[in-house]
Amino acid sequence: MYSVKQADKTNSAGKRNTETEERTRDRVLQGVLSHGPVSAAALGEHLNLTPAAVRRHLDVLEADALIEVTLLKKHGAGAGRPARRYVVAPQGHARLGNDYLHIARNALKILQEKVGDAALASFAQERADDMERRYRPIVEAAGTDIAARAEALAEAMTKDGFVASANSMAPPRRQKLPEHLLASIQLCQAHCPVRDLAEDFQVFCDKETEIIADLLGVDVRRLSTMAGGAHVCTTHVPLLRSVETSE
């Protein structure tokens, strides 16, 4: 006869299994954030999960609108079918921690309307100045090599929740490019703590780009932003010279 004690054990085991599944699903979501755009196979390797397990969690996260599929064309792949890659959806970013209070957006709108654009720019500049003060010693410690400085900056930004990476870019074979594009790095940010605000106030992106240029010591170009609808914020960093330091 099925006892109450057996029922309790069954319920307890079911609860533990559910909690384990939820923790693993959160790991998968974090993995997509850190490595996206990423394939299911590559994500499984990163997280040490079986293909069946990672796809099961990806299906649930996609059904919950926390992640979405983007189609990427591989370099040199010709006219073949684009590869399916997973990225975090806007709702997923909110779950991961950028669901700020609407009062922040309203306060900035009031500031802009009552005081003017200069006041809004000053507010964004203070945030950028704080980033520069904290990142400057870290970047300077990396020396004068731009690639090393970019890597140090990416690590510092990751600790602040940007999930940043510095990726070396090589031009396609047999393709002639201008000299300034031959050696470069893409500084990518998979998460933006002020994404929702930057959608309405581009000055946050502009000031952040200026700080990246100042810290790396080269002219950079913002290729994409999450505030503008992209899946990641991408900054093009040319590698033409070492940074000159003052004595």
Rank of each mutant, 00 (worst) to 15 (best):
L111V: 11
L33D: 00
I110F: 15
A148Q: 14
E151K: 12
L43Q: 06
A142K: 01
A65P: 00
A142G: 05
D117T: 07
A77G: 01
A141M: 12
H57R: 13
K73Y: 12
L153R: 04
E132T: 04
A104L: 08
R84E: 08
L47W: 01
L47C: 06
H102N: 14
A42V: 12
A53D: 13
D59F: 02
P37V: 11
A119G: 03
V139Q: 09
E132V: 11
N106K: 06
K114R: 15
G143T: 08
Q125H: 12
A141T: 05
N98G: 06
R133N: 11
A104G: 02
S39K: 02
E126S: 14
R84W: 06
S122L: 13
S122T: 12
D99W: 03
V115R: 12
T50V: 11
A141Y: 10
E155M: 08
G78L: 02
Q125I: 04
M131W: 07
D59R: 12
I138Q: 08
H35T: 01
V38L: 05
E45V: 01
Y86M: 04
L101A: 13
L71A: 14
V69T: 14
G78N: 02
N106F: 11
L43T: 05
D99A: 12
P82S: 01
V88Q: 04
V38R: 05
